[in-house]
């Protein structure tokens, strides 16, 4: 993806690659980590773990419901299952299994949805996960993570492994810009402030963090200073970071997800209850996408720095309304 190129961000790995590599490292450290696959290991990158630890790797075939149930059983016996498939198949096909076999008993299963969002491109809407964050947030006790780049993905996968309880992590297919060029600190549930600014706050996750940084650059050229938050954890939400962001007087959220039930909804709830300020939302809206190149899709469906800039100006213009 070319997001962030014009502000000098260099292209890194796909977050799914960072996940696969981190998983191998975790496997070395913790013999209780097991990995379950729905016959997509060379796409989700759990093939790396399969090669390193074949006895702890189970390909259950194209059967996500059973995959999740087996993970629940393994977790009941003290294992730490990382289960991976495409985000849409994992969350949509196996939602009741995630509810009953993982969330309700609060089992220590780490659910990884790869190929999140519309940035998978040409394969089209049947493979695109645009509702996974909403579904994951609707499971009581789940932590929900959307890393922005390879650094974030590797660190958050490791944070998920030590977190006690179920976690959902969304990773993506394409190579993405490195937001954390000099590394970064990642704590589950704590947002990272990537840029200070007094006029508006841009709260983003996943690929849209790079877009938000790009937007902050464009806004700066017009004399508008934007604070940029990487809200990599949608749940539990870092409400204190939202409250600080609201001190700018206007907030824009940006996510590669439906407008319903994702980052924007979570931030809006915190803003409404703790720090009302005007908000605008950059998202996919209420629609499925289509086949196309990732960049073309981001342009057509409004997931660009320019869209964030427009939203920021709207939000700033509404400050006087409140």
């Amino acid at each position: 993806m070319n997001i962030g190129r014009r502000i000098g961000l260099t292209l890194g790995k796909a977050t799914r690659d960072a996940f696969g590599e981190a998983l191998v490292e975790l496997g070395k450290e913790n013999p209780n980590i097991v990995v379950l696959d729905g016959d997509l290991n060379n796409s989700t990158k759990t093939d790396l773990f399969a090669k390193a630890f074949p006895e702890r790797f189970f390909n259950v075939g194209i059967a996500e419901s059973n995959l999740v149930g087996v993970a629940g059983g393994l977790a009941s016996c003290g294992k730490v299952p990382f289960i991976a498939s495409f985000a849409c198949f994992m969350m949509c096909n196996a939602f009741d299994q995630l509810r009953m076999s993982v969330a309700f008993p609060g089992l220590n299963v780490k659910v990884v949805g790869s190929h999140g969002g519309i940035s998978i491109g040409e394969d089209g809407p049947s493979q695109m996960s645009v509702e996974d964050v909403a579904l994951a947030c609707a499971l009581p006790g789940f932590a929900v993570l959307v890393p922005a780049d390879q650094e974030a993905a590797a660190a958050l996968v490791k944070a998920a492994a030590v977190h006690r309880g179920p976690v959902y992590i969304r990773v993506g297919r394409p190579k993405v810009p490195i937001v954390y060029q000099n590394g970064g600190e990642f704590t589950l549930g704590r947002a990272n402030c990537l840029r200070e600014g007094r006029d508006v706050a841009l709260i983003a996750n996943g690929l849209m963090v790079a877009a938000a940084l790009e937007a902050s650059h464009l806004l700066h050229q017009e004399g508008i200073e934007a604070l940029v938050l990487d809200m990599h954890t949608v749940k539990p939400l870092d409400e204190e970071a939202v409250v600080r962001a609201a001190q700018t007087g206007a907030i824009v959220t940006a996510e590669e997800h439906l407008i319903w039930g994702g980052l924007g909804s979570a931030v809006a709830r915190a803003v409404a209850s703790r720090c009302p300020v005007p908000m605008e939302f950059v998202s996919l809206g209420d629609t499925y996408a289509e086949s196309g190149k990732p960049e073309e899709l981001f342009e057509k469906y409004g997931l660009t720095a320019e869209a964030i800039v427009r939203a920021a100006k709207h939000a700033i213009a509404r400050k006087k309304d409140v």
Binding site: S65, V70, G72, G78, M100
Partner: peptide, 19 residues
Amino acid sequence: ASTGSLGQGLSIALGHALA
């Protein structure tokens, strides 16, 4: 196991068996 949504127990049992 927490059950009641039918169809899930055998998968959970398989997880125990593999463990």
